[in-house]
Amino acid sequence: MLHSYSAPQQGQIMDSHIQVKNLNVYYGKQQALKNINIEIPKNQITVIMGPSGCGKTTLLKSLNRFLELNDGTQIDGEVLVDGQNIYDRDVDVTEVRKVVGLLAQRPSPLPMSIYDNVVYGMNIHRMKSDRKEYKAAVRHYLEIAGLWEEVHKRLHDPATSLSIGQQQRLCLARGLAVEPEIILGDEPTSALDPISSQNIESRLIELKQQYTTVIVTHTLRQAKRLADYVIYMYLGEVIEAGPAKEVFGNPQHERTRAYLEGQI
């Protein structure tokens, strides 16, 4: 169809944190993202939704340069975070990933203790100078992730001894501990039970004051619960993007409407 989506009325976003400009991504010869132009608002939750295979996760992973972990991926275009193109040649990819944290689809606790999981990233970046500071930071981030109460008596147990829902909150704490500005979530609750999912969702809502959050989800209901801003994708293109109220209340595009009504 015809027209690629014309950029979401620029100026609508007062304060954009991430700008994606003319982004095209190819896996080998197959084009996964087609000419993406979007802006992502600061300190809000942006939800990327769409049917499976539409490029949601590809778009998300373009934001922390995770796409280049696969051989044969070609990326054209710009992703600006705070005005800096993260694909510029002189940008240090580890700095990008420190600023843009990722909560993976499946919880991936590192094979070490709960404590060491939270310390891991801080250690990598030498963010603290002594044990006391690390201890305080571990407590702080486990509290933010809503896990402290459950684990403070067994911080030195292996992280894999936690339930899967607890593991995902641990991963959240580990991600937050390197002081990112942006949290990416790749269907972060899809592996979890309803109560654990709800727990993660509440954390994300609490955190949105301080972090720009981008979540990929394939469940419409979760999108409606979380989203301040919505990006709807279909077959590698952004079909519609805008504030959640507008997109859910009065979708401008017929495909978006069809998706919201459950036809796709």
Binding site: F66, T94, R97, G101, A104, S108, P109, Y120, G121, C171
Partner: peptide, 21 residues
């Protein structure tokens, strides 16, 4: 690969990931 990605996602280099994880 999940483990490698978990380490890379917090900004570890590839060598740090290999050595630590």
């Amino acid at each position: 690969n999940d483990l490698r990605h978990a380490s890379l996602a917090v900004g570890a280099t590839q060598w740090q990931t290999i050595r630590n994880i």
